[in-house]
Amino acid sequence: MTEEAADMGPGSLRARDVMTTGVVTVPPDTPAPALARLLADRGISSAPVTDAEGRLLGIVTEADLLRRLAGAEEKPAGWLRGFFSNPDREAARYARTHGAAARDIMTAKDLATVDEDTTAERCARLMEERRVKRLPVLRDGRLAGVVSRADLLRAVMEPPAKLGAADAEAAAARDARIRAALRKEMRAQPWTGGQYAFADVQDGVVALHGFARSDEVRRGLRVLAERIEGVERVEDRMVDAPVLWPSQYI
């Protein structure tokens, strides 16, 4: 359940100012051994589980994987314990400790999440209350980033105005550089139909707009944008070109 942002004053840092973007995510069908290798290789302690649209489904943590490993050593419960136990709770525990994929192992219920306007103070308090090390940040139900304890510590060590201003200036400069590189490359490639296709850049995300003559042009533009340094994601928002199309485009 997403926590509402507390009104801590205009000078407070928000989750959007301190969160880590470009978070490593996994699909729900990811096998448990692959999850363990991912966490070990990347030196991270958890990975959000998302669907194809980026909606948050749950989180797989080191603790979840260790719980699964410990569960392999458990013996069947005796009849007395089975008589007093809750069947639904026991079934859920069994699935999490014996599951083969992220969807069964992950923590999914009662996740602590925040939105981009949640203050850093509220994030810190929520971490303490829920005893978690990180909070997924949601934008319209989709994962936008993660606020970790390390992110909050960096916010404490630097004055809010300085940190926020530096981040904003760096992001604006990166977006401007990407826009310039896109315009230059699209002008150099005649197949792009530059007079009918254009790109917008916000926070490192390239959104392609305009008309596309074919799927090949769409794919080519996506690859072109992905090659530019600093681009985090490319979103195709183009529409198919009309049947009656100016001859200069063809």
Rank of each mutant, 00 (worst) to 15 (best):
S46K: 03
D51W: 02
N86T: 09
V49T: 07
P87A: 04
G204S: 10
V217R: 15
R219M: 08
V201M: 03
A91G: 03
D167N: 11
A199T: 14
V147S: 04
K162F: 01
S85P: 00
R81P: 00
G210C: 07
V132Q: 05
N86V: 08
E116L: 13
G43N: 11
D203R: 13
I59F: 01
A165N: 09
A32P: 01
R134V: 07
A70E: 13
E185K: 15
V239L: 10
I44D: 10
I250D: 11
L182E: 02
E232F: 00
D51L: 02
Q195E: 14
G71V: 08
E216T: 15
A188K: 11
L38N: 06
K162Q: 14
D203Q: 14
E53F: 00
P160Q: 04
V206L: 08
A95N: 07
R218V: 14
V23T: 09
R134E: 10
K75G: 06
V49Q: 06
R149V: 10
T119W: 00
R134F: 00
D200A: 10
E121P: 00
L69V: 15
E3M: 07
Q189I: 13
R183S: 10
P190F: 01
W79I: 15
V18W: 03
R37L: 10
V223K: 14
E73N: 08
Q248C: 00
R67V: 02
D64C: 07
A176G: 04
R67L: 07
F211T: 12
Y196Q: 12
P28T: 05
A207I: 09
D7M: 04
L208M: 12
G22P: 09
R139S: 13
P10N: 05
V26A: 13
E128Q: 11
R154D: 13
A197V: 15
R37F: 01
G99V: 09
F84H: 08
G164T: 03
A108W: 03
A40I: 09
S12P: 01
G54Q: 05
R218H: 01
L135R: 06
R139Y: 01
F84K: 13
